Amino acid sequence: MTNFVHRLHHVGVVVNDLQGSLDWYRDKLGFEHQYSFTLPGAEVAMLVRGEARLEIIQVEGAAPMSKERKEIETFLKIRGINHFALIVDDLEEAVAALAAKGVEIVIPPSSVPNHSGDRFAYIRDNERMLVELFQSAS
């Protein structure tokens, strides 16, 4: 059976400051806090915006993000998930609105190099994690 997966449900992100991340994703990207819970040694909050869901996790004693993960020149040299992408209707408008809110624009609006007409940009969240904004041509 190969068709048991339907779509991605959520992305989990370990952060240093749970409340700071809740505030950032609410104020900058319009996510809503759906619910919170605790696990041994962790505080967790689920955020939603449309079909996008983020599980924000603050863990006691979590290691800080490595220097290589923080730099656009080296972040692809680390295995594992390194960013997540959010779909936007108008990439230029989204990037301009976020820049006006003080969000760091790491890569400005660019074309996906496969000639599809799809476009993307990268921003950083409050913890310097990369977030891609993606606009489909279709």
Rank of each mutant, 00 (worst) to 15 (best):
M1V: 13
T2C: 05
N3I: 02
F4I: 15
F4G: 08
V5P: 15
V5E: 14
R7K: 13
R7M: 14
V11N: 10
G12R: 02
V14K: 03
V14W: 05
V14D: 03
N16M: 08
N16I: 06
D17R: 01
L18P: 03
Q19V: 04
G20C: 05
S21R: 06
L22C: 02
W24V: 04
Y25S: 04
Y25D: 00
D27K: 10
D27S: 09
K28L: 06
K28Y: 05
L29I: 13
Q34R: 15
Y35L: 15
S36H: 04
S36T: 14
T38D: 08
T38N: 11
L39R: 10
P40A: 15
G41F: 08
G41A: 12
G41H: 15
A42F: 11
E43T: 08
E43S: 12
V44P: 02
A45F: 07
A45G: 06
A45R: 00
M46N: 06
L47Q: 00
E55V: 00
I56T: 00
I57A: 03
V59Y: 11
E60I: 09
G61P: 11
A62H: 09
M65E: 10
M65G: 01
E68S: 10
E68C: 02
K70Q: 07
K70A: 09
K70S: 10
I72T: 02
I72R: 08
E73V: 03
E73N: 05
F75Y: 15
K77I: 03
K77V: 05
I78M: 05
R79S: 03
R79C: 04
G80W: 01
N82D: 13
H83S: 01
H83Y: 00
F84T: 08
A85R: 08
I87V: 13
V88C: 13
D89P: 01
D89M: 05
D90W: 00
D90P: 00
E92K: 03
E93L: 03
A94R: 10
A97L: 04
A97V: 06
A97H: 10
A99Y: 09
A99N: 11
K101W: 05
G102Y: 09
V103P: 02
V103Q: 12
I107V: 12
P108D: 07
P113N: 08
P113Y: 01
N114T: 03
H115S: 14
H115T: 01
G117R: 06
G117Y: 12
G117I: 07
F120I: 07
F120D: 00
A121W: 09
A121R: 06
R124F: 00
R124M: 02
N126C: 04
E127S: 12
E127M: 10
L130M: 07
V131G: 13
L133W: 07
S138G: 14
